[in-house]
């Protein structure tokens, strides 16, 4: 039997792992898919472009875990759902945004949606639980950050001298000195970007078959779900 975990362990580099997994495709699609999944699970895999390449299109569309694999990679690369869904749509991969589902409920009913959200509230009824989901968006905020060492230079110059010449009282000499201090500071700054998540204003109810204590309130999650339609509150 093909040992996908052992396969992925040979290639700690995600890009190399995916390329090697791809080589199994002509031989066994089953082994190639197991190898690809192992690459995503056991390497810091963020290569969404390689994953949605034509080579894997059939696998991603037909296998039940295809959408989950894509969702996991979107999360691993930071969870920028809006931008990554745009990449998936260029390849006609059917995972949609909450915004699309809300705007055309009939069109998207039963379809996959991918949402970045925080859990606001949790209600349980027997085994089942319902989560209040608050959709989050990422925006990039930049600020200047000092790079490396800052140099501070302090120089003191003292000038002394005498000045001679004619004055109204006759000839004379005036002596004096001038002290000058110069301070300078050199620092190099670069813009640094931080991704701040904030509420989009969209909310949803998320149904879970069983209670899950790991879905904690106040943290962002990348959630893959089926859109069941709209419900009047």
């Amino acid at each position: 039997a093909f040992d996908a975990k052992a396969f992925a362990a040979q290639f700690p580099n995600p890009a190399v792992c995916e390329r090697q997994a791809r080589r199994y495709l002509p031989v066994s699609r089953e082994n190639a898919w197991s190898a690809l999944k192992a690459c995503v699970e056991s390497t810091p895999f963020t290569q969404l472009q390689a994953l949605i390449d034509r080579a894997w299109a059939q696998e991603l569309r037909t296998r039940p875990e295809g959408a989950a694999l894509l969702a996991k990679v979107v999360a691993q690369r930071g969870g920028s759902v809006e931008g990554d869904l745009r990449l998936l749509h260029e390849r006609k991969l059917p995972i949609f945004s909450l915004a699309s589902a809300v705007s055309q409920p009939d069109t998207y009913k039963g379809r996959y949606v991918l949402v970045r959200a925080q859990v606001g509230d949790m209600r349980s009824e027997g085994e089942k639980s319902t989560l209040w989901l608050v959709e989050q968006d990422l925006t990039s905020v930049s600020q200047e950050v000092q790079l490396g060492t800052a140099y501070r230079r302090e120089s003191t110059f003292t000038t002394t001298g005498d000045v001679g010449g004619q004055t109204s009282l006759g000839s004379g000499t005036v002596g004096g000195s001038l002290a000058q201090t110069e301070l300078s500071r050199d620092a190099v700054t670069i813009p640094a970007y931080d991704n701040i998540s904030h509420e989009t204003g969209r909310e949803a109810l998320g149904r879970l078959a069983s209670q899950d204590p790991f879905l904690e309130p106040g943290r962002d999650f990348i959630i893959l779900a089926r859109f069941d339609g709209m419900r009047t509150t």
Partner: peptide, 20 residues
Amino acid sequence: GPSIPVLSIVSYYTPHPLVV
């Protein structure tokens, strides 16, 4: 009244912090 989308959660993941 107002309506809210209902989702059946399939799976979820913790987003990795983005490094730019």
